[in-house]
């Protein structure tokens, strides 16, 4: 009887030691809220990050506005990759983000896209009355939606296109509306369609909308998490930057640090 108990205890102890050892010293994980436009690149970055550090990223995708609201309500996110620079700054100011952790990880590119060849020719496509539905994402909650509205305003086409606009809750949905053919064209992120070969696209010139500066912030909940801090650092590494550029983003010049 006694022997069994000792054996059990020993086993239990060993299991604990192993479990604690691996999780504390080798691999951790961190919860990351990611703006929907950055879905594809961050998956690749997560794989590279895992290969390099052993840490896992637990990724959640959505509209930046939605994440901002959730984070102010104590959501368990440790890193926030926003699609804008205003919300990370706001979180930092409100004490929910770690001071000095905000940096620009990517500058997004807006593109007008159709899944069929020859449909999108340029800005004149927006004037085409035969196009019944133009999808964008919610301009109030998602920066790409805001950029799409700015573009149409710069072109003085907004009032003309407005009755034909349909709104997705985030950029993924704006893409989905075009992908399923329910909207003929839509403003999406270049990163979403970078691999698309069959469709037609017009990369919107940068002078038509304010640059989509996408900032990352380390959140208070991640301040003590090694994996979260390592991920923030990894995002600035040449390896991560190469992936980000591959998906059609611009990367700000590296700061010597």
């Amino acid at each position: 009887m006694k022997r069994i108990t000792t054996l059990k205890l020993a086993l239990l102890g060993a299991t604990f030691a192993l479990g604690l050892g691996t999780s504390a010293a080798f691999a951790g994980s961190t919860n990351v809220a990611v703006a929907a436009n950055f879905t594809e690149p961050v998956k690749e970055i997560a794989a590279a990050f895992k290969a390099k550090t052993g840490h896992d990223l637990v990724l959640s995708f959505g509209a930046s506005g939605q994440f901002y609201t959730q984070i102010t309500q104590d959501a368990p996110f440790e890193v926030f990759l926003s699609a804008d620079s205003a919300r990370p700054k706001k979180l930092e100011g409100e004490g929910l983000g770690v001071k000095g952790s905000v940096f620009t990880y990517a500058v997004g590119k807006l593109v007008l896209w159709s899944k069929s060849a020859g449909v999108v020719k340029g800005e004149e496509t927006l004037k085409d009355a035969k196009i019944a539905k133009v999808s964008i994402c919610n301009p109030a909650a998602a920066p790409y939606g805001q950029a799409a509205v700015e573009t149409m305003q710069s072109l003085k086409l907004y009032d003309d296109v407005k009755p034909r606009l349909v709104e997705g809750a985030n950029i993924t949905q704006a893409y989905q509306f075009v992908q399923t053919g329910n909207a003929e064209i839509g403003f999406v992120a270049l990163s979403q369609i970078i691999a698309d070969k069959d469709g037609s696209r017009w990369v919107v010139p940068q002078n038509l909308y304010k640059p989509i500066t996408q900032d990352a912030v380390l959140l208070k909940k991640g301040e003590a998490n090694e994996a979260a801090k390592a991920f923030m650092a990894f995002l600035k590494s040449p390896e991560a930057r190469a992936i980000i550029e591959k998906y059609g983003y611009e990367v700000p010049p590296a700061k010597a640090s």
């Binding site: 909650a141 709104e167 809750a169 949905q173 909207a183």
Partner: peptide, 26 residues
């Protein structure tokens, strides 16, 4: 509604979606 509506005021932007929008934009 969120998936097939397109959030068009007066046509498909119903109450539940409007609430979602207001929450999203604080």
């Amino acid at each position: 509604v969120l998936m097939i509506g397109g959030n068009i005021p007066g046509r498909t932007k119903v109450l539940s979606v409007a609430i979602y929008d207001y929450v999203e934009t604080s």
